[in-house]
Each structure stands twice: as C-alpha cells, then as structure tokens.
C-alpha cells in the first residue's frame, strides 16, 4: 500500500512539466526515503534525477519499496487537471497495475480521482559517484534560462567557462557569435538574486544547447540554479525543490574528436 499526500500539489505539476520533454517513460521509485526517479533520455546523453523526501509530504505511507512505471506525458495530462492550489494524493495498492491521483481543492468542496495505467519499463540505473567539482556556479534560475534561450537563437552549442573573472557562456553559429559573462555578484538585495562562483580551478566545457534549454523547464521550481562543472565529468544542473529535495540534470559534454 502506498499513499503520499502532498499539500503543495503544484510542486508535482511543475516536476512533471520539468522532465516530460526529456524523458517519455520512467519508473518512479517509492521507499522510506522518499519518492524518486532516475531516467536517461533515449540517446543516453542526459539524465534526470528527482528526489522528493518523505518528510516533505503531509502523509507518507510506503509499506514496501515500489517501482511504478509511468508514461510522463500521460501523467502530466492527468496532473494538469489538478488546480494549482489542490492537495494531491498518490495512491497505489501492492501488485496493482494502476496508480490513482486524488485532487482535493483547498476548502475540500471538490474531490477528484484519476486512475492511470502503469507500464513495465526496463530502466537502466546508473551509479553516479560523488565528485569534486572544479567550479560550482549558483545564479538566478530565470537568468540561466534567459541565457540558454538567447544563445540557442545563435548557435547549437554553448561553451561554459569559469575563471576568476566570472562565468562565460559562449556560442557560435552561421550568423555570428555571442558571449555572455556573468560576474560574481553577492551584493544584491535578496540572496536568490546573487551569482556566486566557487572555483577550485578554471574549467571550460561544451554542451548541446537543446538539452540545456530542456533543463530550464524546471525554472518554476526554484529561484536559483546550481551548475557544477569538472573537466572530466558531465555537468550537473540542479534545481532545489523547497524543503523537499531536488531535481538534477546531468549532461555529457561534447568532446574533442
């Protein structure tokens, strides 16, 4: 028996909108730790890892570990039927081939349940080792989204370079080139507006903008984004989900031939 009651149901709606472009089908894993997901895109270039910790739910019952295969577009269709202020409860019985999403309006005058068919998915789980990153950049998520969108109108790839001076996003295409430098800026009114760079050593890596733009669908989940870079590793683009967990995107770099 599984029963997860999330008062801030809009979080789940936003999570689905953040990942459904990247991944079609995925297994949601439920354990005492929380509600989680790890899935790669079909070309094995990008990976999304989601964790919603059990403590973040108003009620969390998971009698035994359960993996539920879901089509994310279908799940998003159902969650779009929940109001932004609704409380969402996810329910499943052991051995069942369906999951139920229950939506309650804040004043309890409307209760809806949507039952969705589960699917068997052969998922490839990857072990992601803890890593020391050469550079970690934290910046406003909307600013990062704007940069990725702007650069993708010029080129297909972005070079992200971190130096003492700041973080530089560069692209080149048929019509020309573009460079956007964001300097460390801690003297802002609100901490979420700051750009903070922790650098052990300079790093420069090239990534496909198509994937970066897809990651920025998670922007509504968090005011800030953290970009962790190491010269020999995939980049991690992390959006923290307030008090509950995170959504992390990993992207393999472009490599010199």
């Amino acid at each position: 028996m599984l029963e997860l009651r999330l008062v801030q149901g809009s979080l789940l709606k936003k999570v689905l909108e953040a990942i459904r472009e990247l991944v079609n089908d995925a297994n949601f894993d439920c354990s005492a730790t929380g509600f989680s997901l790890q899935a790669m895109d079909s070309s094995h270039v990008a990976l999304v890892a989601l964790l919603l910790r059990s403590e973040g739910f108003e009620h969390y019952r998971c009698d035994r570990n359960l993996s539920m295969g879901m089509n994310l577009n279908n799940m998003a269709k159902m969650l779009r039927c929940a109001g932004n202020d609704d409380i969402i409860t996810i329910k499943a019985d052991d051995g069942s081939d369906t999951v139920t999403f229950m939506f309650e309006s804040p004043n309890q005058d409307k209760i809806a349940d949507f039952e969705m068919k589960l699917m068997d998915i052969d998922s490839e789980h990857l072990g992601i080792p803890d890593a020391e990153y050469h550079a970690i950049v934290r910046m406003p998520s909307a600013e990062f989204a704007r940069i990725c969108k702007d650069l993708s109108s010029i080129g297909d790839t972005v070079v992200i370079s971190v130096t003492k001076e700041g973080v530089k996003f560069s692209t080149a295409g048929d019509i020309g080139t573009a460079n956007i430098v964001c300097r460390q800026n801690k003297t802002v009114d609100k901490p979420e507006e700051a750009t903070v760079i922790e650098m052990q050593e300079p790093v420069s890596l090239t990534f496909a903008l198509r994937y970066m733009n897809s990651f920025t669908k998670a922007t509504p989940l968090s005011e800030t984004v953290t970009i962790s870079l190491s010269s020999e590793l995939p980049v991690v683009v992390e959006y923290k989900i307030a008090d509950m967990g995170y959504i992390r995107f990993y992207l393999a770099p472009k490599i010199e031939e």
Partner: peptide
C-alpha cells in the same frame, strides 16, 4: 570538431 559524449562513458550501469 567535437562529438557528443555519452553518459555511459562516465557513469556505470548498476
């Protein structure tokens, strides 16, 4: 020239 890296080259399947 660059080519797209693959995550399986960095992380192991478990």
């Amino acid at each position: 020239d660059t080519k797209q890296g693959n995550l399986l080259a960095f992380f192991k399947k478990i």
